[in-house]
Amino acid sequence: MENMSRRKFLKLGGAAAVGLGAAVVTKTADAAQIGGSYQKDSARMQAKNWGMVIDMSKFSEESFNACVEACHSFHNVPNIDTKKDEVKWIWKQTYEQLFLDETHEHLSAKYKDQEFMTICNHCQEPVCVRVCPTKATFKNDQGVILMDMHRCIGCRNCMAACPYGARSFNFKDPRPYIEEINPTYPTRMKGVVEKCNFCAERLALGQLPLCVELSNGAITFGDIDDPQSGVSKLIAENFTLQRRANLGTKPKVYYIV
């Protein structure tokens, strides 16, 4: 030790502190569980790969508005009316805006301006999942793209990556903009990203997504990997469109025009 200068000592100390810090960090990250055990609800809706077919010809203005209202109020989505900061899970967009690659300049205004329901496409090859640096956005065992709000750092890489504009960032504290807070569902904090979750909290307990229930039959929800499911049959029998199918994201929301 006699040869150890103060400088060397400090250097060694610093290295030791970094090592110790790393050890503590790794330990907290994979700490073991405590208490009892966990299981899925026996009533959970079963599917390998949830998908959705939206038949716009069957969708009335009334039931569409009911869907938006129900979704946003159940999920405590704030009603912020500036376009810059707005948060939305489900909304309307015209054909021309939604199907950028399937339109042309002479398309009749009748079709161009027809309004379509817009939500997260729960892609099979999701770009948002690929770019997320913390796995806050992930795909669950039923092919639903979910967000772990506890983990989201708000880097907004997923927003730049999403080809569908499905994601909203909480530019401000959302609570003052929620007319009536639903006590059974959390709100979000400012500084995290959010989007439609295919009502994962309802699927887990054996209920269909809210918009599906309120669409009066315009939305069919089911397993697109199962050829016998309602969605697969609709896709087989009708002409359907996907948004920006050329990007390879394999979106799972299909539209019957």
């Binding site: 208490g35 009892g36 055990s37 966990y38 992930f138 065992d141 979910l146």
Partner: peptide, 19 residues
């Protein structure tokens, strides 16, 4: 326990806790 619930429910879809 709540920290475990948070992970099990959100990430693993295990909504039922067996005490």
């Amino acid at each position: 326990l709540l920290a475990d619930w948070k992970v099990e429910v959100v990430r693993n879809g295990n909504r039922i806790y067996v005490a």
